[in-house]
Design a protein around this nucleic acid. Structure first.
Lengths: 187, 187, 187, 187
DNA sequence: GCTTAATCGAGACGGTACGTCAGGTCTTGCG
DNA sequence: CGCAAGACCTGACGTACCGTCTCGATTAAGC
């Protein structure tokens, strides 16, 4: 029989205020302008309340991702029946997002991922690899446009990796970058 | 006729001491344990001498990469005549390097790249995309193993991106990760 | 009903440690060898704790004076009934103190007074003008040795000023300097 | 036969430029805003040229005083025949000068005097003690207004000391401060 | 209802590193 | 060889945050 704790439970209001303040500041200023003191002030919360529940700022950012506060998840590949066209459309959308301010957000997420591998994993997922892209690929396999023997996860990693690299290098994408990347990988 | 500057010129000794100290500390402790004060102390140099010539620590790290002080460039793909085998061998080497401490170094370089796009570009290059991998791919085209129409640069970006992602996510590679990645991309 | 402040209160231990460290270093090394970093180290205190409560090192020195940590207040004129003799004795004591290392302490205090007028005022007081010397003069007025019409404060300022000047100029006092000064002022 | 030095001699232009720049900056900003680098820049002179000839900034300030670049020497006591009236007039002039910005200049000079006793001596002189005041006192002795037995130098020190103290404490002088000081000292 | 204990906002604490400023010395090329 | 210029090493400056600790108030479960 478990020992019941006495006293008040964790304040959901504080938890949410912290996550929202973090998301807000993260998008405004980026990962390394993000400070624990800044979050505490923005959320009207004591620093100790943060440290009681999270060990580091990257952990908070990870939670923001998990709660869907950070990357809008509109980034799923369409399914018109033609795999190559769909992948190109999808990549164009992502590259467009990167060019319009998205790059710095992704860079910041990468920065957060550096000392919080879970963020990297979540980033991979969020950008479509595990679920959305896989679903699209399986649809393509069914349509005979994609060999069932090609490993879908690694395939997705190559795409997301290229995107991340693109965000890091920060060179403006050439007009046909989407096509070229899809062609390079799709064969 | 050029205006001659008067006064002392930049001290090459100081410049080298700083770069070497940076490389040393970077490999020992990683990017964010790297501090300007630490570099100054390790190089027996005044902080001002650093700030006179570099605006930020990421800029120094970038210079280290450019001077070849940071990533040994042994990472070129072999050429046995069989492209798939060679790429798998190459990837295995890299993944092995990541598993044995290399991952944190790459993570640190990514951290450095975040506010210094030139580092990202140099990182891309250093890890073989532009020259070494391209050469191998052209050899494969000549051998009829690779379609001349597939864009080699984007192809390389997919590889390097996957590697970077792998280093970020930091999950131990599965035994056949190299094969799967090559198969995914090569088709 | 007073508003209660929440949170920790100022640490008296830190406050005292800082003042004592300051007094110690001030006497050892003088005002301009005194550094904020030195005080922080000597007091085992963070620099911010100093800057939180004092705006400048002269303000700390002023507080040291106020707390009586700096000038031993043994410098009161005796009262044997003969004003001139007493003043000479008193001046001799002070000049002797100046010759034996006291001059540099007074010089340092003057340095501190330069950007902290309160120190000057306190210095004036401490050296006896306002209270001790005035009491002695009143006693002399009662004894008919001093005209009640002579302003005692200005009288004291002349004495202390001469002492300060003496400490600044740093010429070794001639044997009869005390007598001459008293005679000059007393008339 | 003396060895003749070879090479150019000390540049009088540089020497003057340095002294003038020092006087200019000193009056504009005060002693501790005065920096060697600032002087060098203002005088269009290399720092080494300063260090070659002066050991410290207070030494330069001392030279400025000696060259008469700093304190206008208009501060001599008048001689109407009535000593007390003359001293009061003289003190009033000085106190007025202190109130109108002179105090900070005197404070700065005192700061300079702290590590350059010669400045203190020169300051004492400049403010009239040794020559001008003594001459006036001797005239008073001749007129039977001042006892020949009172030591004139110590008398002057009391005056100048009170002035210095006044500049340090920085309290606005009361209207009758001049009278009171003269009466206190004169008896 | 009272006790007890964990929560909360606030913020002081000892520290580390920051990026800047000035100090005093050393080096370079010109006159 | 003096000079203007300026790079060098050093060390203190005042600031920003770190992560921990302390305060008084609040809140909820157990008695």
């Amino acid at each position: 029989m478990p020992e019941h704790r006495r006293g008040p439970v964790r304040s959901e209001a504080a938890r949410l205020a912290i996550l929202e303040a973090t998301a807000r500041l993260f998008e405004e200023r980026g990962y390394d302008q993000l400070t624990m003191e800044g979050i505490a002030a923005e959320a009207h919360v004591g620093k100790q309340t943060i440290y009681r529940w999270w060990p580091s700022k990257s952990a908070i950012v990870a939670d923001c991702l998990v709660e869907g506060l950070l990357l809008s998840e509109y980034l799923s590949p369409p399914d018109t029946g033609d795999l190559r066209t769909d992948l190109v459309t999808w990549m164009r959308g992502i590259l467009g997002f990167l060019e319009n301010g998205g790059a710095s957000l992704v860079r910041s997420l990468v920065a957060a991922a550096i000392d919080q591998p879970a963020i990297g994993a979540r980033l991979e997922e969020t950008m479509g690899v595990n679920d959305l892209l896989r679903a699209r690929l399986e649809s393509a396999v069914a349509a005979g446009q994609f060999s069932a023997s090609r490993p879908t996860q690694a395939f997705g990693q190559a795409f997301v990796g290229a995107i991340v690299l693109h965000a890091l290098v920060a060179t403006p994408a050439e007009p046909d970058a989407a096509e070229r990347l899809v062609d390079a990988v799709l064969g």
